[in-house]
């Protein structure tokens, strides 16, 4: 599903963010990418959604070589990858329903389709009764669940979660992780970028550890080793 072949990313100021990374994530896998801040985790995530391009090597998503992806093809790619960020990125002046609807509107979905999909995704994340609430009326965990609901609207093959629990207390963090596991059981590939030991150790799924832009360990059913 996701394949990195000898990928290096060097930023213009000669900062090496990724150094010859080789990686293969199978469809339906749940993979945690761990490491301390500034070790290349977020760069790796950005390469997956074509927010950055590799300096060297190949990035292949679902059989599609996106190394030299064209500008107008990026939206097509991003509709296949649901993205969840630490800082939610919800619009404060829109309700939960409108926030999710906005994401569908800008992609040209019809009104009928919007009204059909939103209750479905809200049900998956357990917020059916919160659709008229504004983000500030929700807890951090609930807001993050709205974001996950939004990331599901295109029925993506991949969910990319970059520090989704970074702003949450441990109980809320656990709920979010359970939700991601639930989505994973439907067959969606989940890539979780985190530096939270407890979560990674609890999951007992594949763990890829990064250090100074390199993969230093890749374990099926692994633990946080740093």
């Amino acid at each position: 599903m996701i394949r990195f072949e000898n990928v290096s990313k060097i930023y213009s100021n000669n900062v090496v963010a990724l150094n010859n990374v080789n990686l293969h994530i199978q469809p339906g896998e749940f993979v945690s990418i761990v490491g301390q801040s500034g070790m290349g985790k977020t760069t790796l995530a950005k390469l997956i959604i074509a927010e950055e391009r590799p300096t060297k090597g190949k990035v292949i998503i679902g059989g599609w070589d996106i190394t030299r992806i064209r500008h107008h093809e990026i939206p097509v790619l991003r509709r296949q990858i649901g993205v969840v960020y630490q800082d939610f990125k919800l619009l404060p002046r829109k309700t939960v329903f409108e926030n999710i609807a906005f994401a569908l509107e800008v992609c040209g979905a019809s009104g009928a389709r919007i009204r059909k999909i939103i209750p479905q995704v809200l049900k998956i994340v357990g917020l059916e009764d919160k659709s008229r609430f504004f983000p500030r009326q929700l807890s951090g965990g609930q807001q993050q669940r709205v974001v996950i609901a939004r990331s599901l609207i295109h029925r993506p093959k991949i969910i990319l979660a970059d520090e989704p629990t970074g702003n949450l207390d441990s109980i809320n963090a656990q709920e979010i992780i359970h939700l991601l596991v639930k989505i994973n059981t439907f067959g969606t590939t989940v890539v979780l970028v985190t530096h939270n030991h407890d979560i990674v150790n609890m999951l007992r799924k594949r763990v890829i550890t990064m250090d100074h832009g390199m993969i230093i360990s890749d374990q099926q059913s692994g633990k946080y080793i740093l």
């Binding site: 990026i74 939206p75 509709r79 990125k89 994401a103 800008v106 992609c107 990331s151």
Partner: peptide
């Protein structure tokens, strides 16, 4: 900029943005 960021994130076409 926030809305534009989200548009990009969810795959709105450049044309639409």
């Amino acid at each position: 900029r926030e809305e534009l960021n989200i548009m990009k994130l969810v795959g709105a076409t450049n044309w639409f943005i």
